[in-house]
């Protein structure tokens, strides 16, 4: 399996505080990965890093060159009072295909109609978006992802405030994408959902706690370790010394359930300083 996303000693964060700390690994093409972790553990930050709206503080995050990407953010900046219909919102997904000036063709309108019926919003085409409920809007955004027809799909907490039936529908959709060998990463909080439906999982606590087979990743000792991370920033935390080069001494970074020792050490230092 070739890599769709390669994370090379990736550190992402805000104001020199890391939110994702020295993450190494690769997301294989065609894989379906759940990203799990407590609040503030860096899940959304990692997604922003992969999309490219957040630049790395250190290291690199590479998306394979021929890969198109669709991103459903957790906190959408969507303006719901904007005078647009559901079909206008979903048609935004045509941007990668038609860009700024390309005319929408009949097959584009067909793709939009198919996406809408795919998420159970048939008949909602001409509804103004400010009349949709939260769950209906989320389904419309899924339809937009469908229209984007991307190879790599990033969904950030797509099941928040969604009723059980809709979650089932959306999971089915994700599985269909998986069958079409698209690469999918989903931030999820419901661990049972992950165990049941996701082959792989990445457990984050700012640093990676475990990454691999979903059931093994979510084993209780890993969950316990993930819970022990210090959520708040420490203004007096020592500067991370990883750039000085002992990082490459440890060969077993990627995809390993083993936490690399440097991070543990750094973590311990920080707690000591706090």
């Amino acid at each position: 399996m070739s890599a769709c996303v390669t994370l090379d000693d990736l550190t992402l964060g805000y104001n020199s505080h890391p939110a994702v700390h020295h993450l190494n690994g690769a997301v294989a093409k065609g894989s379906l990965t759940a990203i799990v972790g407590a609040n503030g553990s860096g899940k959304s930050t990692l997604m922003k890093g992969i999309v490219g709206v957040l630049k790395p503080m250190a290291g690199a995050c590479k998306v394979a060159s021929d890969v198109t990407l669709a991103y459903l953010p957790q906190q959408s900046e969507l303006d719901r009072s904007f005078p647009a219909r559901v079909v206008d919102l979903v048609s935004l997904g045509l941007w990668p295909r038609r860009g700024l000036l390309g005319r929408y063709r009949p097959e584009d309108r067909e793709a939009v109609a198919k996406a809408l019926s795919g998420v159970g919003l048939k008949g909602f085409e001409n509804r103004p978006i400010d009349t949709l409920s939260g769950g209906q809007l989320q389904r419309a955004l899924f339809a937009r992802v469908l229209v984007q027809d991307a190879d790599l799909i990033l969904l950030d907490e797509p099941f928040n405030a969604i009723d059980a039936r809709t979650v089932t529908d959306l999971i089915d959709l994700i599985k269909r994408w998986h069958d079409e060998s698209r690469t999918i990463m989903v931030v999820v909080h419901d661990l049972d959902l992950v165990r049941e439906h996701f082959p792989e999982a990445l457990l984050l606590a700012r640093r990676p706690v475990a990454w691999g087979d979903a059931r093994k990743t979510l084993a209780s000792e890993n969950l316990l370790r993930a819970r022990q991370f210090h959520e708040a920033w420490d203004e007096n935390a020592p500067w991370c010394a990883s750039d000085k080069g002992h990082n490459h001494v440890n060969p077993a970074h990627a995809h390993s359930d083993d936490v690399h020792s440097h991070d543990d050490l750094d973590h311990a230092n920080r707690r000591g300083a706090a």
Binding site: L78, D88, L92, P96, G99, L100, R144
Partner: peptide
């Protein structure tokens, strides 16, 4: 697109 969903526009363009 910039009015309706600025973050989306930044993710595709």
């Amino acid at each position: 697109a910039e009015c309706l969903d600025p973050l989306f526009l930044r993710s595709v363009s």
